[in-house]
Write a protein that binds this DNA or RNA. Sequence first.
DNA 1: GCCCAGGAGTGTG
DNA 2: CACACTCATGGG
Length: 283
Amino acid sequence: MRFELEIAPLDLDLTLGCGQTFRWRRGPDGSWSGVLSGDNVRLFKRGAVLVADATPGGRYVESRVEEFLRAGDDIARIQKELGTDRMLAAGMARMKGLRIVKLDEWECLISFILATYANIPRISKMVESLASAYGRRISQGVYSFPDRGRLAKASERELARLGLGYRARYVHEACTTIDEEEFGHLRRMGYEDLRDGLIELPGVGDKVADCVCLFGFGRLEAFPIDVWIERALSRLYGRKGSYSKLRRFASDRFGRYAGYAQEYLYHNERMRAQGQACLFLEQ
DNA sequence: GCCCAGGAGTGTG
DNA sequence: CACACTCATGGG
C-alpha cells in the first residue's frame, strides 16, 4: 500500500536521526523504515511530497503517519513564537524540517527507561532485542514492540540476559505497575501531574519523565534536560544548576513550545560535538 | 583493554 | 538542596 502525504516542512534525516526514535532505520536509498502500531512502514520524500509504503492490509496507516510526524504542528507558528529568543532565532530557520515525533506511550516509556546511562547505539540495540524476543513478527527480521501484557511475561532474569543490565528490574516493575486503565488516566492529566505520575515509576526520574511527556504523550511544553542540553544551556545561556532550576528557566524562556526549543538545542549541540556546522553560537 | 554512556537511586553533609 | 557514589554492560 502506498500513500502520499503533505506534511511540511519535513526533513526525515533530521527528524528520525536525532535520537527521538530508536527503531527507525535509514536505508541506503535514503528512505526510513520503522514500525507504526504493528505495521511496517517505509517513508521517503519525492520532492515536497512524503511517500509512505506500508504493510499490505494495514489500516489507517495514513492517519498513523500523520500522528507520528505530528502533521498538525504549525512549524512556522512555533518558530515565530520561539523566535523571540535571539539565540534560537539565529539558527532555527535552518532546522524547519525537524519535527517532534509522537511515539506510542508504552514503547516510549520503556525505551527511555532503557536510555539511562547508555549510549544511543546501545539503546537501539536493547529496544530491538525486546522487540525481536517478545514482539510479534511482522516480516523478515521486523517485529512489533511488545505490548505490556506480553512483556510482563518475561522474568527479570530473562530481561537482564537480553543485555538490559540493572534496567531489567525497572522494565519488569513498569510492566506490573502500569496497565491500560492507568495509561488512559495519564493521558487526561496536565503536564505537571503527568510528569509527577511518571516519576513514581521506578527507573523514571526527571529526565526520563520529560522525554516520555514530550515524545510519548505529546506535551510540547516538556523540556528534557540531558547532558547535551545541560552543555547547551551552560554554553549559550550561562545557566547551570539543578534539574528543577534549569527546567524553570526553560519553561519561562521557551514556554508552551519548549519541547521544540529542546530539539533545536539538542541537535545543534550534537552537531557541534561532531565538528559539524554549529548554528547557535555563544554570545 | 579502556572509557564512558540521552540517568536514577540511595545515602550523607 | 547539593553533592558523591554506585549501578551492569557493551559500543566506540
